[in-house]
Every structure is written in structure tokens, then in C-alpha cells.
Nucleic acid binder design. Structure first.
Lengths: 340, 340
DNA sequence: TTGAAAGCGCTACCAC
DNA sequence: GTGGTAGCGCTTTCAA
């Protein structure tokens, strides 16, 4: 029986392959990695021995020697919640994992809810000592990381889900202002005379600005503003407050799908109809939004593309660090009352 | 400036620490790993040098030498969808990651939707060559893995989210039959005279059996059976069919939250009221189920506990491989019509 | 209590 | 084209 990498039996090494193929250990490497030309029939023999023995190069040794583990890490910066509770974050991890895999990299994932910034730095150092080739940092709170401090760890990093970072560095984010402007334009176009906003203050800045500006431009009342947690429960609380108002807004712009799902839930609880009584429009365009009731109109972030770009930045770092903005797309469903 | 593990500057090694502390390299190891007693003031000096230099042991070297990477991997077996589209799977990954982290292990995650069983084996071997200490396999389809084939790879493994595996091996799963029996009992108790079933045939066996048996026992009509995809859309399709029936069932048991979310959506689309017209009860007790509308009554799987058990099995393998069953718990919300 | 040194499995350099 | 070998950074044995 073939043994390999197990705890029990000694695993098969390059030496065993060399012996069986009747060549030196070096030739095994050459055959497998193309480090030097190998005679066809020699290669043949080596490959045969590899197959027969079930040989797989020990990646720890390779990493030690070559300095690269062909591994990336995904870290959530100071998550306040388990990552999967935000559907768009879950999508992000998955997209990064796929992008890494398609380029031959494995992916570590880590996320310690409520860890704070110090914890993030500690995890980053932990992965540095594991010799990862790069780290994708998912910004998830207002917590600011210090690019200089990150650089000092010595591992390439890229920050995703963020606005342009103040201190420089590689970062990637969707066009929040542009997307919010389009969403608000959509609402205004359909004649809603008052539009509220649900979001958490520090985190929702460019979107909130778009809300105000579009309203001002079209003489629409920008109110009320619900400053609530970036969670389902936060959204639900906003909805309960809204339902209690003597003159509720005709529509609300919600800062994320996760929060919007809570808004929908709260509105249903109170018997407020969507979109007949209050129209809802949201941000992220996550999978969940499609199967909400009613289907959530939402601004879709191009997660796949952003994840791929993040991975590429780590694997082939650009000359100059920069912030990259990705365009978003409005997906119209039923919740905004403008569906065909 | 401190450099460490980076691409550019040479990283600081144990040698540097030894020199600075005026000791041999061995003593640095002793101090850090407790391999031998070290004089207090020597240790003091070493620790100081470590801090000043920002030294972190190279894990690739440690792995090569010691044979353990302190790393686990999480693999989805032949996933048909991106893992995050099933809330309970997303919760699983997260729980395993947390359990691993709390024991000092990092976690690789990988999932190739639609890869099939051959792909799973390939990924397993890939992780074996990365010298992981164990692999958590999440069963997600009827695909059967061959325990002997798994063992041949030489890496400790444990299969989660499964029934007792036919060929032996370590596996972990919730008490599906027991949970379904309790859920059905709850429905029956509240007087529903006909109860339908939504699930996909091969995957939902013990739950379906519970449905039939409880109905038979109490003279309740067990029909119709909707054999649909294990997805939101599958659930939605079942709901559309149901709404079209001349005499729809008074309640349905749905095999998972993900599917149930689709059922809810489809029922809403057709104007069928839940629970007034049709009561819905589901399985998994995922986070999402709490914020559905109406809140989903669901059988909660103890994900945290199962994930922790899986990790423990890998880190300290039991003498004898076995299947471990975990108890479940009914969480009553609004969708079953029995909420207070 | 400390130090010297072997060697984990691999890549890549240099000699043939 | 092929083989010998140094050495990546670490743990651990053995001797001092």
C-alpha cells in the first residue's frame, strides 16, 4: 500500500523516487520543476516512479528552500461578527479562495470577531511566520490600520472593501458614492417624495453623502436618518422606529444587504407593506438579496473581480501601491416598487 | 526598522537572535519551546533579543524538522454550489476555523463547486503534500467517499455533516432522524391534518422516514412529497407547485433552511400566508432562519460543538474510528403557527 | 545549563 | 543531460 505524508509510515521522498528510477535526486527535481533539460526517456522513468510510489513533494521543504509557500491568507480586520453573518463577506472569502486556487495558491482563512486592531496585527505576524506570500485584509469596521505598521511585518498585503486608505498602500473597493448615486437616482426617478437612510454613521460615509446630495438636487426630503448597527438586528430596529413614525418616508436607502434584510423583517412584523408603503433599496447585491421577500433591489458589488484583482496584486505586486475602484451595477427587483 | 519574513530584506533568524543574546542557537530554541531548562537570566537575554529583533520562528523550517505544520484543512466534498450559499455550511467553516485557532492551528479552506469525488481526492492529496495535520471533510452531496482511499493518502481525516459512513472511519453528524421526529411531532401536536415534505431524494433519507413514520403513527396524511433541488430555487419551485394544488397540505417539513428560505419566498410570491394557510418547519437552525419572515421554526444543529469535536478528533485521534451523533434542538418561531 | 552538529526534503549551483 | 552537494532555519541528540 502506498503511504504518503501520514503520521505513521515514513513518507516517500525524492530519494526513493530517484532510487527507483535509477537517477540522482537532482534529476527528479529537474523533471518535476523543469529546472534543467532532461532526456525524454529519463523523464519517462522518473514520472513512472513518481506515479508508482505516489510521490508528492514535501511543500514544507520546498517552502524552506525556495522562500515561497504558494499560500495566501485571508484576514478580517476587527470583525464585529462572525464573517458568515454578512452574506457579502462570505462571498468575498469564497471568491478570494477561488481566485487563489486558480493561480495555484492555497488559502488560509482567519477571523476573530471582536479582536480589534491589535489582534489583526498579531494574526498578520502569525501568517508572516508561516511564510505566506501575501495577505488579503477585509476591512469590516471603521478601524484604521496603519500602512506603515503593516509594511513593517514584511508581507505583501492588500486591503479590500474599503475607500482609499489615508496612509497609502494597496487597496481595492467598489464605487460606493457612484453606486449610491445611481440607486438614489432610481428612487427619485420613480417619484418618491421623501427618502430615509439606514446605516451606521462612521462606516457609511460616501453613501450617505450621495443620499443627501441626490435628495438636495431634486428637492426630495432627505429624512429620517437611522443610525443603527451594521447588522440584521440594526436594520430591524430601524424598521420598528420607522413604522412608529407619524409620517414615515416613502422610501429608504439601506447601506447593506445584511441590514436591509433586517429592515424587511422589521417592516413585515409591523405590517408595513414593501414597496407599497415604503420602498427599500440596498447595497451589495448579495445572493441572499435575491431570495428575500420582496426581492431586494440592490447595488451589486463585483466581488469576483475585486477578489481576483486583490489576489493578482499580491502575486504580482505593482510598482506603485494604489487604490483601485470597481464599478457597481444596480439590480432592480421588487422592493423598490419599480420592477416591471 | 524591523524586517521579517518579507520578500525584500533577509529575515531575522534564530542565528541573529543567538548572536545578539550571546548564546548558541540551541538555547534560543530551548527558551522558546522549553526543550531544555534554561537559566533565568539567559532566557531573559534571549527574550529581549527576540523582542528587539522582532524574531518569529520560520514555520516552514519548523514543519520540515518536526513533521507538523500545526495546520488543518477544511474541504467540501463535491459541493454543488458555492459554499456560502448554504448558511449552515458557512457557519461550519467558521466554527471549524475558530476551533482550530483556539487550539493553535491555522486552517486552509478549499471548495471547488462541481468538482466531483475525484477532485476532492486530488485536493486532499494537495493538502497532504502541504503537510497538514488533518482534514475536515464536509459532506455536501450523496457522493460517497471511500474510507480506504482516504486512508491511503495518509492524512488524518474526519467527515462531518453525515450519517454513519458505510465503510467506517471517523465521522460526525447531527441526529437527523431524532430531530425530524421532534419537528414532526410538534406539527402533529398542533393539529395539522396533512403534512407535506420538501427535500431532495437521496440526501434527505432519515428525515423523510421520520416524516412518514410520525404521520402514519398519528393518522396524518403524509403528502405531497416535493422532490426538488437542495437549493433556494428548489424550495421556491416546490412552493409554486404547492400553491397550485387544489388541496394543498396544511403544513410542510422542509429538509434545510436554505431550501426553506426558497419555500417562504415562493409562498409569498403566490400570496399564500405562512403559517395561516401553510405552516413551515425546517432543519438546521441557521442564523438566516431567525431573520426570515416569518421567523422559521427550525431544528438546530449544534455546529459549534460538532466543529470542535471534529478538530479534536484530528488533533488527538481516538484509538478506534467511529461515528459520533450530536443531539439537536427544536427552535420554535413563527412559521409553524405555534409560537406564543 | 549550554553548545556543536546532524539532518528534515528540497532547489539550484556548479562540475562533469 | 546528469550528478554531487551546499544550505534554507529549525529541533533535538549527545557531549561537555
Amino acid at each position: 500500500m502506498v503511504r504518503q505524508g501520514g503520521r505513521g509510515g515514513r513518507s516517500v521522498t525524492r530519494r526513493d523516487v530517484a532510487e527507483r528510477a535509477g537517477v540522482s535526486a537532482a534529476v527528479v527535481s529537474y523533471t518535476l520543476n523543469g529546472g534543467a533539460p532532461v532526456a525524454p526517456e529519463t523523464a519517462q522513468r522518473v514520472l513512472k516512479a513518481v506515479a508508482e510510489l505516489g510521490y508528492r513533494p514535501n511543500q514544507a521543504a520546498r517552502a524552506l528552500r525556495s522562500g515561497s509557500t504558494r499560500t495566501l491568507a485571508f484576514l478580517t480586520v476587527d470583525a464585529d461578527d462572525a464573517i458568515f453573518t454578512n452574506p457579502i463577506f462570505a462571498e468575498y472569502v469564497h471568491a478570494v479562495q477561488r481566485a487563489a486556487a486558480s493561480r495555484g495558491y492555497a488559502l488560509y482563512t482567519a477571523s476573530t470577531p471582536g479582536g480589534g486592531r491589535a489582534r489583526t496585527m498579531q494574526e498578520l505576524r502569525e501568517f508572516a511566520s508561516r511564510q505566506v506570500d501575501g495577505v488579503v485584509l477585509l476591512a469590516s469596521s471603521e478601524q484604521q490600520l496603519d500602512p506603515a505598521e503593516l509594511d513593517a511585518v514584511g508581507v505583501p498585503w492588500v486591503l479590500v472593501n474599503t475607500e482609499e486608505a489615508p496612509g497609502g498602500g494597496n487597496s481595492i473597493g467598489a464605487d460606493l458614492f457612484g453606486g449610491a448615486t445611481v440607486a438614489m437616482g432610481h428612487l427619485v426617478e420613480h417619484g418618491y417624495s421623501s427618502i430615509g437612510f439606514v446605516g451606521d454613521a462612521p462606516r457609511s460615509e460616501p453613501r450617505r453623502r450621495a443620499w443627501r446630495e441626490v435628495c438636495a438636487e431634486h428637492g426630495v426630503e432627505a429624512s429620517p436618518l437611522f443610525d443603527v448597527d451594521f447588522t440584521r438586528e440594526g436594520g430591524r430596529q430601524a424598521a420598528l422606529e420607522l413604522a412608529d413614525l407619524s409620517s414615515p418616508p416613502r422610501a429608504v436607502f439601506v447601506v447593506s444587504d445584511r441590514t436591509a434584510l433586517g429592515v424587511l423583517r422589521g417592516l413585515h412584523e409591523c405590517g408595513v407593506r414593501v414597496p407599497e408603503d415604503v420602498a427599500v433599496i440596498s447595497f451589495d447585491g448579495s445572493w441572499e438579496s435575491a431570495y428575500a421577500w420582496p426581492g431586494l433591489t440592490s447595488v451589486r458589488q463585483p466581488i469576483e473581480e475585486m477578489a481576483a484583482a486583490a489576489v493578482d496584486r499580491l502575486i504580482s505586486p505593482p510598482e506603485e501601491a494604489s487604490h483601485q475602484v470597481f464599478p457597481v451595477e444596480l439590480i432592480v427587483r421588487e422592493s423598490c416598487g419599480a420592477h416591471a
